[in-house]
């Protein structure tokens, strides 16, 4: 019978010992050279836990220089990797997950009462013994914000070219195909036939892209709260780009685009629901385009219609409402243009709102990001390091 000589897990203290000379190798192997696929299928945020277990050992032996040096090289190497991969969503998401997890670990094991309420007795035994790393937490928090901003920039760069064709031009409702205002060519089909022209994207392509972002962030173990903030920011971008185009293009200010847009926004709300993201406040960012879609569809003739529009369009400014009404283009000879007196009626009713004279939305506006503390249930002493990581110079203690 095989004799088990391996130490039992209860004998480990959840620390990793390394020689000071191996610090650069650790940063290179675990941060610089690692690909997210190398650690997929292991504990999410494995690099963060390994780094923290190394910090714990340096703290345990009371070596302040070793702690400082490891944290500094960790932070600098993460920054280097992000710079090298500044257009790579996967790498940016991976390091956002790991940096914020390392930040959570420094809080969870800080020994401060406020961060210990969800800890197991074993986790409390694993708290740092000698050093207070509050200032390094601030650095990691600042770094997390930088990585978050890079993640948003990369994701926006990918979806920006898709938004107008997916939200306003592609025909996701088959029965509406070809229903365009008088005098306008079918824009999306003309784009399709133009080999040198910009590519046109369907709503399904946009939603598929959002799904890929979401899956990647989940695979990397990014906190659900942070994922929600990313999605909300991307939905803001989709709303702003769509509304701004609607406000500048007469050919899309029609009943049929209104119908299309309402359908598209409902599909996006459905995507949020299907992915448990409805609480992320992302849905609320679509309110302006939902109201614009309704404005394109409602009757615009009587005084009652004017009153209904004013009650309906609370997320649009007076300028935006008036602009859409002015641009509104009838579908056929049976539909009338919006009359000047109707628009004046609306303007009079909205006067008391004192809306800012703002027509276009700021597509670059960013919501303030928050990284709420999220302790982990993981027991450090149970963590295994796969041999494929080539970290055999780390010794479990």
């Amino acid at each position: 019978r095989q004799v088990t000589v391996q130490r039992k897990e209860k004998d480990f203290e959840g620390m990793l010992e390394y020689n000071k000379e191996d610090e650069a190798l650790l940063a290179k192997t675990l941060i610089n050279d690692i690909r997210p696929s190398t650690v997929s299928g292991t504990v999410p945020c494995l690099p963060a836990y390994i780094l923290f277990m190394c910090i714990r050992h340096a703290d345990y032996i009371n070596d302040d220089q070793k702690v400082e040096s490891l944290l500094t090289s960790t932070i600098n190497t993460i920054k280097k990797v992000l710079k090298k991969n500044n257009d790579d969503f996967e790498m940016t998401s991976f390091w956002l997950a790991n940096t914020s997890r390392l930040l959570h670990c420094l809080k969870q094991y800080s020994g401060e009462e406020g961060f210990m309420t969800h800890n197991t007795p074993k986790q409390n035994e694993h708290c740092l013994k000698n050093f207070d790393l509050t200032e390094y937490r601030q650095v990691l928090s600042d770094l997390s914000i930088q990585i978050y901003q890079q993640l948003i920039k990369v994701a926006e760069g990918i979806i920006q070219p898709m938004i107008v064709s997916a939200m306003l031009e592609s025909e996701s409702i088959p029965s509406l195909a070809g229903v365009k205002p008088m005098g306008y060519r079918n824009r999306s089909s003309s784009l399709d036939t133009d080999a040198d022209g910009p590519t046109s994207y369907t709503l399904q392509a946009l939603i598929k892209q959002l799904g890929q972002f979401h899956n990647t962030m989940q695979d990397h173990g990014l906190d659900p709260e942070i994922i929600g903030q990313v999605v909300r920011q991307l939905f803001h971008c989709i709303n702003a780009v769509t509304l701004n185009n609607l406000l500048l293009r007469k050919d899309v200010c029609s009943w049929s685009t209104g119908m299309q847009l309402r359908y598209n926004t409902s599909q996006m709300e459905e995507w949020l629901r299907a992915n448990n993201l409805y609480q992320s406040k992302a849905a609320a960012t679509l309110e302006p385009i939902i109201q614009a879609a309704q404005l394109l569809q409602v009757k615009k003739k009587t005084s009652q219609d004017a009153e209904a529009i004013c009650t309906l369009c609370t997320a649009l400014t007076t300028q935006q409402i008036v602009k859409i009404l002015n641009l509104y283009t009838p579908l056929n000879e049976f539909e009338e243009r919006v009359t000047v007196s109707f628009i004046r009626n609306i303007q009079n009713r909205l006067q008391e709102r004192n809306d800012p004279p703002q027509l276009l939305l700021d597509t670059k506006y960013t919501f303030p990001v928050l990284f709420p503390y999220s302790p982990s249930a993981l027991s450090l002493e149970t963590l295994h390091i796969p041999a494929s990581l080539n970290l055999d110079f780390l010794v479990r203690v």
Binding site: K79, L128, K129, F131, Q138
Partner: peptide, 30 residues
């Protein structure tokens, strides 16, 4: 829970300061 003695605060440079130090180190190395 064992009574914990006060931990020593490790002073950290800011992220920008760390970057500056890192850049000057890179410049020094050939």
């Amino acid at each position: 829970r064992p009574p914990s003695r006060p931990r020593i605060l490790l002073k950290a440079p800011t992220l920008a300061e760390m970057e500056e130090m890192n850049i000057s180190e890179e410049e020094e190395s050939p």
